[in-house]
Design a protein around this nucleic acid. Structure first.
Lengths: 185, 185
DNA sequence: CACCGAGGAAACAGATCTGTTTCCAGTGTG
DNA sequence: CACACTGGAAACAGATCTGTTTCCTCGGTG
């Protein structure tokens, strides 16, 4: 098997396990065994487990943004913003859902200077920017506040789904109420 | 020093450290050393580190409810519900704030049957019940939905404060919008 | 066939944790 | 003083992790 395949299979599997069980809970022995390779091979691809995590975080950061509705389609800003939460709902209702990956990893590494925590902040800021752009297009009078409010709702909804096992059904109503208040129709 | 003092000092200190750095990141050696006692004494008070965590969680569960505005005072339900977020704001802006303790610990123990995770759910359900009671008193037409929405906002606000280092200033406006929608004036 | 390199299996080193045990110093009491 | 008890310091056992190394097997190539 080509080395690149081994590398990407490692990143993919590590993403799953780190997300579902946590970075510290998953040992490199298990990662290697699951993929039918030896630790020797793993450490030839990545200098350390931390380097593997960095690659995992980079990959997830890229993927998360793709879940936002395409800004070049012909939907209205309101529809796009509601679409963010529809996409999140689908994400949270998947059987393997286990919380926001970035928040989970950031909780494990409390140190704010750790790359994992910084990546989590960056992801939130990407959502923030997306909301602001949509709100500005729609002529909202305070897109900054709306963005903050929707980011809070977005984060809270994932937590709620994780703790209760059910995505909060009334989120959509709450989002619509906030969009109405900010004049986005 | 009386044994009871040692016990409660242990619980208090463990609460701080488990909250700020995580359960697994804080060893019993350090806990004992910080308090100037030996591990022997610690293990005479608690059979295991897990038993200490159980006591910590019980104590925090009791304390968290006390942060909700007293239901027997003469404030209106709307004022009480806004007061929940004012109290949270003060909590999040304290220098030692490091996220919702229950969510943090629950994230460490992914197993939903673990007492820590159950305690986290219980705490959220207590907030849910509080909101519902206030909403029902105020004659809301759908107190269940409002409770869900405010719990999501509440959880998300703590996450936001943890990740960004700043409590979301526009939460109050969002809460007021939702209260308005549900007919609570 | 002879050789060589890639990679698996597993031992190993070193660190770090929980929980136990040993030893000893200090203290209160007869 | 003699004795018993408390609790600190530290060694220890056993587990678990990361990362390294050793040994061996197997497949490709001259």
């Amino acid at each position: 098997m080509p080395a690149e395949d081994t590398r990407s299979r490692l990143v993919a599997h590590a993403t799953n396990l780190f997300h579902r069980e946590g970075f510290h809970a998953v040992g490199v022995d298990r990662l290697a065994a699951d993929l039918g390779i030896s630790k020797k091979t793993l450490y030839k691809q990545f200098r350390s487990k931390d380097e593997l995590l960095t690659e995992v975080l980079d990959r997830c950061g890229d993927m998360a943004v793709q879940d936002f509705p395409d800004e070049s389609d012909d939907a209205s800003p309101r529809e796009r913003l509601l679409g963010v939460f529809d996409a999140q709902r689908a994400y949270c209702e998947a059987p393997e859902f286990s919380g926001c990956f970035f928040v989970n990893i950031a909780t494990e590494f409390r140190d704010p200077s750790h790359p994992a925590v910084r990546q989590a902040c960056f992801h939130k800021s990407q959502l923030h920017g997306y909301v602001r752009r949509q709100a500005d297009i729609a002529g909202a009078h305070d897109s900054e506040s709306l963005a903050e409010q929707l980011v809070v709702l977005h984060t809270g909804a994932a937590d709620y789904a994780l703790l209760t096992g059910r995505y909060p059904a009334t989120i959509r109503q709450a989002v619509e109420a906030l969009l109405d208040v900010h004049g986005i129709h």
